[in-house]
């Protein structure tokens, strides 16, 4: 009992130690950046303190009843997040469903795999012009670009995960006479879950990239990507930097959220 408690304590101590170390490195890096930018005094590289203040003024100094969001934040961040969420959700659902279907059929896997590898190899932003032609400029085009680019990592990883379902467990499912839906839900899907999340993490970062990229194109009137190009044409370097930092923070938070979901779901089935 006490040995286990000791082990737990020492694990927490180590975790706390690493957290402290990580924050120290971050604070140091920002500190060095601040000092260097101030010393140089270039208008192209504002110090992080000014960027943070600018971000605050721009987006987070709104009234309390709007969760401190300014109208600029509502106009810029929410549409971007909305497009990204829609695109990512479409990619995730389609990728998981198709991936399971492809992975569970040996023939489908053999037939589809070359096509999938080809589709994955095409750099996603290169496809955006195609979607511009199909959907014209606007939100549907942006969502389609995000979804179509982000679907491949989920699909390929899900298919590989579903294909590698333990054959003994498939025998067990047969002997327990689980029907197809039960077999997928209780066996194939949980078996593939670690691979599915590996795919989702890749797709999430692709979604963020495609979100920004699709908003850089003409025909967009709002969004973080639009703010970026708009500020750039006005030579408002401070806003450009603010948008960049905001994208970094958003990417970090979204990935952390996904990791938390993954830990919650897979932690229960530890020894897979």
């Amino acid at each position: 009992m006490s040995a286990a408690a000791d082990a737990r304590t020492s694990r927490t101590t180590i975790a706390a130690h690493y957290a402290l170390l990580r924050w120290t490195v971050l604070v140091l890096a920002v500190g060095v950046w601040e000092l260097a930018a101030r010393a140089h005094g270039s208008v192209y590289f504002p110090p992080p303190g000014r960027i943070a203040r600018h971000m605050h003024e721009l987006w987070f100094s709104g009234p309390a009843r709007h969760a401190f969001l300014t109208s600029a934040a509502v106009d810029d961040i929410l549409p971007s997040l909305g497009r990204m969420t829609a695109g990512f959700a479409l990619a995730a659902v389609a990728g998981i469903v198709l991936g399971i279907a492809v992975g569970r059929s040996r023939r489908a896997y053999a037939l589809c795999n070359p096509v999938l590898q080809f589709a994955r190899a095409v750099p996603p932003p290169a496809l955006v012009p195609v979607f511009v032609v199909v959907f014209a400029f606007g939100t549907p085009m942006q969502i389609a670009s995000i979804a179509f680019s982000a679907v491949w990592p989920v699909l390929i990883n899900t298919a590989a995960g579903a294909r590698n379902t333990d054959p003994l467990r498939l025998d067990v499912a047969a002997v327990l006479r689980l029907n197809t839906a039960e077999r997928l839900w209780f066996l194939v899907l949980p078996s593939a879950l670690p691979r599915i999340f590996a795919g989702l993490r890749l797709s999430l970062s692709l979604s963020l990239i495609l979100m920004v990229f699709s908003e850089l194109l003409p025909g967009t009137a709002n969004g973080i990507g639009f703010t970026l190009t708009d500020a750039q044409t006005r030579s408002d370097l401070l806003t450009v930097w603010a948008a960049l930092v905001l994208l970094g923070v958003l990417g970090y938070l979204l990935n952390t959220g996904l990791l938390a979901v993954e830990k919650r779901l897979i932690g229960r089935g530890k020894a897979i």
């Binding site: 333990d166 003994l168 467990r169 025998d171 067990v172 002997v175 327990l176 006479r177 689980l178 029907n179 039960e182 209780f186 066996l187 949980p190 879950l193 229960r268 089935g269 530890k270 020894a271 897979i272």
Partner: peptide, 30 residues
């Protein structure tokens, strides 16, 4: 029907993502 099998490799034959109770209750669904 009415046949059950116990395999040697219990670690692989049980579903680790289900609790012991849910593992045992699984065949009762049908």
């Amino acid at each position: 029907d009415q046949l059950a099998v116990v395999f040697q490799d219990y670690g692989r034959s049980l579903f680790p993502w289900l609790t012991v109770r849910d593992n045992v209750a699984l065949p009762l669904r049908r």
